[in-house]
Simulated assay, not measured.
Amino acid sequence: MAKMKLRNMRKTIINKTIEECHEEYLNYCISIGQRDKTIESKIRFYRFELSKIINISESIETLTKSIIENKVISMRREGYKGNTYKTFVIKTRAFLTYCFDNNYLRKFNVKIPTIDSDKKIIYTEDELNKLLKKPNLDECLVGDFKGWATINFLFGTGCRSETLLNVKVEDVNFFNDMILFRHMKTRRQITVPLSPTLKNVLKEYIVVMNLINEDLLFPKLNKEKMCYDTLHQNISNYFKNRNVKMRGVNTFRNTFATFFIINHGDIYRLKIILGHSNIKTTERYINLLPINVSTDICKFNPLDVLNKKNLKIRLKINKEI
């Protein structure tokens, strides 16, 4: 009998199809508790991206490094944004790592592309004024009123769309002026301040929409939970009625952060409100915002502040003389 070490036997490649491997991969992701949205994203990636570059009924060994690199090259030549092909590689690598770990595929290195991050898009002050103009309650449609309240909430809290869809009426504490966010990307519950303006909007909205504590704050008309696609469509319709270009629901998060910093809010409070677990995440976020700090340099520079203070003292003394 030929002598073979056990560790060599364990490294024997198990022949499976891409389809079989990905089905196991999804089950594994579900078993370790990944979010439903994450699982849906992996399924879409498999159906609409991975299956387009390779035959999923073939062996997993046909998924090679050159296929991935050629796909990235193709995306770059076709003018795709850096984040698009970077995300493609990240998702592919996550699937490959599972295959490597289970000896379905011989390991090879997949490098995530280095890209220049684009500045985040925000809504302008002029656009916000159009969106935040209160509709006439005696004449407007229910959708217009809900859209107005939704925009106020998104811009007034900086929350993600999934967070908004899971907020209940009882999560809004009008006594302590706080809102509880149960559904966060980091899986931590946080409380954020309820601004006076948003407080007045929500008080009226809850009464008009006849909502009770157990209800979702922004449900469908039958009070069932709204999905993201419905939310996106409703807000798109609202934007169209207000003659404002729609740039995405979560663009309000970028807009909130930008105006927060412009209005001299500090990064540590912003970290708490955005629900970031690490201050470095907030720093990277701010670096991508369209903020020009040069206009405020003189206003806050210690040398200029002290000089202005001394100038006022000298002027005061001269007047007294």
Score class of each variant (00 low, 15 high):
Phe88Ser: 10
Met9Ala: 08
Glu127Gly: 00
Lys91Gly: 05
Arg106Gly: 01
Glu19Val: 06
Asn102Met: 03
Phe100Thr: 11
Thr12Glu: 01
Asp36Arg: 11
Thr87Ser: 15
Ser31Val: 06
Cys99Phe: 07
Val89Ala: 07
Ile112Asn: 08
Leu63Gly: 03
Lys11Ile: 07
Tyr46His: 07
Val72Gln: 10
Tyr98Cys: 02
Thr114Ser: 03
Ile56Ser: 07
Asn83Glu: 08
Asn55Ser: 09
Glu61Arg: 14
Glu78Lys: 15
Ser31Ile: 08
Lys71Gly: 00
Arg10Val: 09
Ile90His: 09
Glu125Ile: 13
Gln34Thr: 08
Glu24Leu: 15
Tyr104Cys: 08
Ser31Cys: 06
Tyr98Glu: 00
Glu20Phe: 11
Thr97Pro: 00
Ile60Gln: 08
Ser74Lys: 11
Ser41Lys: 15
Lys16Glu: 00
Asn27Pro: 00
Lys86Glu: 08
Phe100Arg: 14
Asn109Met: 09
Asp101Gln: 09
Ile115Tyr: 03
Arg10Asn: 08
Ser117Leu: 09
Thr84Ile: 13
Thr92Ile: 13
Arg106Pro: 00
Asp101Met: 08
Tyr104Gly: 03
Leu128Thr: 02
Arg7Ile: 13
Asp36Asn: 11
Arg10His: 04
Thr38Lys: 09
Arg77Pro: 00
Lys120Asp: 02
Lys91Leu: 15
Ile60Tyr: 04
Glu49Met: 12
Tyr25Ala: 04
Lys5Ala: 04
Asn70Lys: 15
Arg35Glu: 13
Leu63Lys: 06
Lys5Pro: 03
Leu26Gly: 02
Glu127Met: 06
Leu105Tyr: 05
Gly82Ser: 07
Lys107Arg: 15
Asp36Cys: 04
Ile68Lys: 05
Arg10Ile: 10
Ser66Ala: 05
Ile67Gln: 03
Lys91Tyr: 08
Asn70His: 10
Lys120Ala: 14
Tyr28Thr: 03
Leu6Asn: 03
Leu128Cys: 04
Ile67Asp: 06
Tyr123Lys: 13
Lys91Cys: 12
Cys99Met: 10
Glu23His: 05
Lys81Ile: 07
His22Asp: 01
Ile68His: 02
Ile115Pro: 03
Thr124Val: 11
Phe45Gln: 11
Val110Tyr: 05
His22Thr: 07
Ser59Glu: 15
Arg44Glu: 05
Ser117Tyr: 15
Tyr28Pro: 00
Glu69Tyr: 10
Pro113Glu: 09
Lys119Leu: 13
Thr62Glu: 11
Ile60Leu: 10
Ile32Arg: 12
Tyr46Lys: 09
Glu49Asn: 13
Arg77Ser: 14
Thr12Arg: 12
Asp126Lys: 15
Lys37Arg: 15
Val72Arg: 12
Arg77Thr: 14
Ser51Asp: 05
Glu20Trp: 07
Glu40Gln: 14
Gln34Ser: 00
Lys11Asp: 10
Lys42Gly: 01
Asn15Thr: 12
Ile18Cys: 04
Ala94Val: 05
Ser57Pro: 02
Ile90Lys: 15
Asp101Val: 04
Ser66Arg: 06
Lys86Ser: 14
Arg7Lys: 11
Ser51Gly: 02
Ile121Phe: 04
Lys52Tyr: 02
Cys21Glu: 03
Asp36Ala: 14
Ile67Asn: 01
Ile32Pro: 02
Ile54Arg: 08
Leu96Trp: 10
Arg77Lys: 15
Lys107Ile: 09
Thr12Lys: 12
Gly79Ala: 12
Arg47Asp: 01
Pro113Phe: 11
Tyr123Leu: 01
Ala94Lys: 14
Ile32Trp: 05
Ile53Ser: 01
Gly82Asn: 07
Thr12Met: 06
Leu63Ser: 00
Ile67Pro: 00
Ile115Trp: 04
Ile30Ser: 02
